[in-house]
Design a protein around this nucleic acid. Sequence first.
DNA 1: TAAATGTTTAAGTAATTACTTAATTATTTA
DNA 2: TAAATAATTAAGTAATTACTTAAACATTTA
Lengths: 93, 93
Amino acid sequence: MAINDLFKALSDETRRKILDLLRFGDLTAGEIAIHFDMSKPGISQHLSVLKNAELVHASKKGQYVYYSLNTTVFQEVMKWMIQFNQSKGENND
Amino acid sequence: MAINDLFKALSDETRRKILDLLRFGDLTAGEIAIHFDMSKPGISQHLSVLKNAELVHASKKGQYVYYSLNTTVFQEVMKWMIQFNQSKGENND
DNA sequence: TAAATGTTTAAGTAATTACTTAATTATTTA
DNA sequence: TAAATAATTAAGTAATTACTTAAACATTTA
């Protein structure tokens, strides 16, 4: 889970909205798609980007695929961000 | 400073490296450019994106332009991130 | 097993983004 | 004031990204 993939995944508005939706509970790909004015394959591709960045987890239940947040990966990004609120010159790589 | 501009600005590796450099102190455009294998106009354009997102501040001193971090804007992003580590369903818009 | 439903993959395209070199602007110094 | 230095703007291009529709795959139900 390269930090680059994380930021790339977060740089798209649609993907951030998908993450927002998932805060309120797990959803199937179809349930997510309903919220957007975009084709289902379009949403599926966004979900694929989020899954690759490990921001979400997918689990198949029958013909449905449930998506859920992977909150631990958000902490990776937080860690990167936090550097910029610390005193100058400390390197936390 | 739309959150979208912030994430778009952060989605590029070169721009994140520029921010990393500025953690250790203010630098001129030229000093920043030295650290990269890229033309100076290329770096200048990245600096422009960072400035637009208000992640950095630019101040001209003679013929030099000094760039510095604007740490307060990082907190905007932090606030967005923090939502995902809170209990489900709380909306902090 | 055929039809229906949910989802993803494939292939192509339009829009955006990250670069390049050349030209321009601003400032300092010989 | 001319030349040198610092930085940006302009214009063009290659690469990437975000979509679309059509096709394929997986599962359930009639």
